[in-house]
Structure formats: structure tokens, C-alpha cells
Design a protein around this nucleic acid. Structure first.
Lengths: 191, 191, 191, 191
DNA sequence: TATGAATGAGTCTTCATTCAT
DNA sequence: TATGAATGAAGACTCATTCAT
């Protein structure tokens, strides 16, 4: 029975987080009222408080859930043992780039970042997520030298920067030459 | 007389914008109440509405004012006629990088971007600023080929991405190798 | 269960409308703050917004509710089939007159009218109420000739005018001869 | 010099009262800000306070100025000595009726009445105006019997009621038969 | 006489959160 | 587990009024 409740609980939590994430994406945290979130989650606002103790808690949970996807790279690495991880990454670059350029994703990412910039609790989750991501990457690469860390930072900046550019320049798509970008990433790998 | 009034108005507006920008930097738009802003501006909240018709108007004015600084590059180009602008830029890269890594600046930038993602009025100002910046750059470079535009986008993404990385990774400073970054920018120039 | 909720809602709405009407009567719309209304309604101001989406909405609801009472006449007509409705009306004239002379009622009526003169939403409700009232009257009278409509208008003007006179002349009571008024109404009936 | 100032003062006061009356007509007292009135009066808001000590003072002055027009009747009586004043009045009834049906005039009248209903200072002016008007009428009629007073009250109610009807029934024009109204007034005279 | 900068109390409204059921 | 009634603090904004110039 305990388990059944847990099932429902997990389902309800996901329901809430999905609804809240969508609200936050569209309107931002501060313009997304609990009333609206509860409506989107098809659940009374009061009931949301059975699963999350505050609105901030929901934000934190969404940030927690919203880790960068590293699993694709991990399975690619498992399928191609011995091959350079960076090469595998470059093979999938097109995918990563299109994800980062996506305005919907960028909106939520930037919103989370803006919140992290003022809210220590959220900042903590963001920092932890980032640290875990980098740890996983370094394990994959099998190297933790300053050089490797710097390379990863530069590539990460480049990708994150695409989200910023997408929001700032509506014509990014036609201005950006993907092949040039690929050559740059390859250069970062070899530098 | 008309001019003197204008002087006062200009002074008061600047007073308000400075105070508001500082508030927004520290707390973000939505947590900065007009009461707090008016306190910071040393002016009654009612009086602020003589100069700005709404809080959103203040945000827009700050975004408007917060254009990227291209003048440094412009004067450098004027002082070194004939020299490649990208080389001049690379000479000043250290400055640009430290600006973008600065957490205070990054916070306001991201806050503005988050607002632009939901608020069409703010988005319009952001887009216009970006377009003007790029126009100025292209005039400086004297070239508007797809290649040049793409190069500018990639460099812009890299720099903007540093702000994101600074917010996500508190240890960015020690992880990032500035010389490597410089080599990458140089490569982008030559690619 | 749905019905019970409706019961509460209806009760609360009535509570709000009663309190608001009393406030409006005493102080007028613009001097009756939501804070005061909520106090009179023994309910938090925030809660009022669960039932009415704005202050104007409350005003509209009060106007809606404040239709002229025609039911007395209707039941009298039902009880005296075949008798001339105007005669029945004249029998009850004393009642109608004292209602219209009542300063409290007159105050709210005039307040509503003043609001209707500026506010199209309120004007619409007022016009609709009046149209419905006249339709009901005409059905009762069983006649919709120009003559009948004119007679009704003149009687209506006379009664409404008593409210105005009551507000303008504090001594109306002693100046007005009710029997003379009755003869006038009878004349209007026969003219 | 004192006299010249007085001239200017009188002119400025009229300027203010005209502007304010128009504002009040269109928007009502409470929605007409001093800023708007000063704009309409082509004068700074601060300067208005040289002539009126408060907004309420302006309202009172407008009410004061807005007495019913009895002069037409007075000059008609002077030109036709010996003739029954009520007959003269009936000759001019069409004029009086169209004035009272006029929506613009009705709006301001009702607004003033609504204000008088809450505001003792305004009520006092309204009552005084009405008393003076009736005194003048009685002098004209040369009779102050209860009967005459009652007749005057009933006619006054009828006319005032037309303003109310005009606001309530947009089709008053086509519903009301002026000749019937005239017969009624004549009856009131003879009753 | 004339301006309009400046104030700050007061307004309507929103919203996260609690709690009885 | 689930509802939604209820609260009240906080927010943006307005406005009559004052005052230095």
C-alpha cells in the first residue's frame, strides 16, 4: 500500500512539475501563479502543497530535474569503446546545437539562471547539477587535467552562448554557419 | 528655460535608472518593488511616475541604455587605421572576457534576457540593440558576408556563454584557461 | 455537493452585494474602498475577488439586482383579473411615492445613474433593466400603443423626479400634496 | 490695478470652472483628476489652487453657477404683465423639456446630485440654489399657498424626471408624446 | 501671477499559503 | 488523497495638494 501511494505520489509530482515547467517557460516564475499552475496540473492549488512545501520548492525540483542530457553521449561511448569521446560528441554536435538554439528550451534555461542569480537555494541546485555533469563528462573522457577542464568550459560556453544568441538575434539561424561552428569545436578539441 | 527643465528631467531620469538598475541587478525585476526603487533613487515613488509611465517602462529604458560597449573598439580602430579589427579585438579580449565573467553584469544581462523571453516590449528593445550592435561591428569590419556574420555570431556566443558559465560554475575562473580561449578566438578569426 | 458549493457561493455573493450596496448608499461608489466593503461584508478583501472580478463587477451586479419592483403590481393584477391595471397602480401610489421619496433609496438610484452616465458597462445594465421593466408593464397593461408608452414614460418621469426633488428640496414632504399628485396621475391615465 | 487683477482673476476662474464642468460632465468628479482639469483649463495644476482652495471647492462653485434658468420666464413675465405666469411657462415648455432631456446636461445634473447626496457642503449649495429658485418663482407667480408650492413641486419633479428617463431609456425621444406632456402640465396648472 | 517638481497616503488587485472538510 | 474557501500582506499605480522658484 505504501508502494501504491508512492506510485500515485510520483505521478502527481511529475504532473505538477510538468505543468509548472510549462508555465515557467511561457510566463516565467514570478508571473506563474499557483492558481495557474494548479489549473495546468489539473489539481487543486491546495493539493500541490501536499507534495511541495512552497513555490520555490517546485522551482528547485524543476531545476533538479532539468539536468543536461549526458546519457546520449554515455551510451555512444559504451557502444564505441576506445574511441575519442570528443569525436563522438562532434558527431552529435548538430543535435546539441539545435537543442541549445531552441527558444523554448532557452527560455526556461535563462529563467532558471536568472532565478539562481538571486536565490541561493536555487543557485545551490544549479551549481550541483553543473558539477555532477562535469564529473560525469570527465569520467567519460577519462581525464581531469586543467587543459581538459578548460576545453570543456569553452565548449560549454559556446553551446550556452547559442541560447543567448537565439534570444537576442531572431535571425541567428541564417547568420550562423553550422560547419564553421563544427570546425571551431574541432579546433577546441585539438588545441 | 526649456533647457533647464530638460536638465532636471534628464538628471532625475538618470537617478531613477541608476537606482533601478542596481536594484534589478541585486534582486531582479520582480523582487524590486517600486517602493524600494524609489528609496534607492531618493525620490518618492509617486514622482517616479512623472518620468516613467510604468515599471515596465523603466525596465525598457534600462535595457535601452545597457547596450554593449562598442566604442572602445571603434576608437581603437580609429587610432589604428588599416589594422585588422579582429586583431584589435583580440588585443582587448582579456577585457571583454573579464566583463562577461563578472557576476554582477551577468546577473543583469540574464535578467534582461529572461524578461525579453516573456515580454514582447522588452524583446523588441533587446533585438534592436543587438541589431544596432552588429551593424556597427560590420561597418567596423567593413564586410557583411555570411562568413563574417557567422564568425561574429560564434564569438558573440562564446562571450555570452561565459556569463552563463560564470553563473553555473563558481570555479570558472580556475577552470578556464584564458590563453586557450584566445587561441580559439584567433582560430575563429582565421577559419 | 455541487449544489452545496453553489449554496455557499450564493450566500457569499449576497453577503458581498448587501455590504457593498450599503456602502455605496452611504458613501457612493468612489468613496467606498474595497477595504471598507470587505469589512462590511465580514470577509477579507482578497476573498471578494473569488466572486467578483473587479469593483466595477460588484457595481454591475448591484445594479442588476436593483430592478424596479413590479411584482407587487403583478400579483395585484393576478388577484384582480379584469380590473384596469392603472387603477391598481393608483391604489398603490402612496407606496410607490414614499419609496421614491426615500432619501436612502434615492441616493443609490442617483449614484447608479451617475455611474451609468460615464460607464458603458453599467449603462448597458441600466438600459436592459429599464427595457425589461417596461416590457413587463406593457404585458400587464396589454397594450403597446404609442399612447400607452408615453403615459408610462410620463408617470415614470414623475416618480423618478420625486427622488430628485427629495434630494434637492429637504422640505419636499410638506410642500408636496399627495392628493394633488394622485389626481395628476389619474389624469395621465385618462388623457 | 486691483481691478485689473480682479478681471484676470474672474477670467481665470471662469476658465477653470468651464474646464472642470466639462471634465465632470464627461468623466464625473472622481475620475476627473486635477491634472486633467488643469490641462483642459490650459493652466498649471498648482495655479488652480490660487483660485480654489480644493477640488471640492471647484465642485461647489460649479454647482453654485449651475442654477436653474429662471430669467427667461422673468423677462417673459415683465413683457406680458398681468398674464398668468403658468401660461407663459407652458408656452416655453418645449424649450424646458428639450433642455431636461439633453443627455449632457442630465449627466452633469445627476453627477452633482449624487455628490450632494454624500457631501454636506455640496448638499448645502444645492439646497440653497433650489430654495432661491423657488422663491423667485413664487414671487413671479405672486402666490405662496400650499397648493401653488405643490403644483410647482410636481412640475419640477416631472421635468427633473425627464432627465432621469433620458438616461435610463435611450429611446425616450420616440416613446414620449410631447403634446400629452403638455396636456399634463396644463392639468397640473388647473388642478 | 504662474509653473511643475515633489510628496505620500490611499486605491484596487494579486497571490502564496493555510485549513476545515 | 483532495478540494477550494479564506486570509492578509504586498504590489503597482493615482492623485490631491504643497512649495520653491
Amino acid at each position: 500500500m505504501n508502494k501504491e501511494e508512492s506510485e500515485i505520489a510520483r505521478k502527481r509530482k511529475a504532473q505538477i512539475l510538468d505543468a509548472a515547467a510549462e508555465c515557467f517557460r511561457v510566463r516565467g516564475f514570478h508571473r506563474s501563479s499557483m492558481a495557474r499552475i494548479s489549473e495546468a496540473a489539473e489539481m487543486s492549488s491546495g493539493h500541490i502543497y501536499h507534495y511541495f512545501k512552497s513555490k520555490e520548492d517546485i522551482v528547485a525540483a524543476i531545476v533538479e530535474r532539468d539536468r543536461s542530457e549526458i546519457s546520449v553521449l554515455q551510451s555512444a561511448a559504451a557502444a564505441n569503446p576506445g574511441q575519442d569521446v570528443m569525436d563522438l560528441f562532434i558527431d552529435q554536435l548538430s543535435h546539441a546545437v539545435s537543442i541549445h538554439k531552441d527558444l523554448k528550451r532557452a527560455s526556461l534555461t535563462i529563467e532558471i539562471l536568472a532565478e539562481a542569480a538571486r536565490n541561493p537555494a536555487i543557485a545551490a541546485v544549479v551549481h550541483r547539477n553543473d558539477a555532477e555533469f562535469h564529473t560525469a563528462l570527465q569520467e567519460l573522457v577519462g581525464d581531469d587535467s586543467r587543459e581538459t577542464r578548460s576545453r570543456l568550459e569553452i565548449v560549454a560556453a559556446l553551446l550556452a552562448g547559442l541560447s543567448v544568441r537565439a534570444l537576442r538575434n531572431p535571425k541567428l539561424e541564417e547568420d550562423l554557419d553550422f560547419d564553421m561552428l563544427k570546425r571551431v569545436v574541432r579546433f577546441i578539441h585539438s588545441v
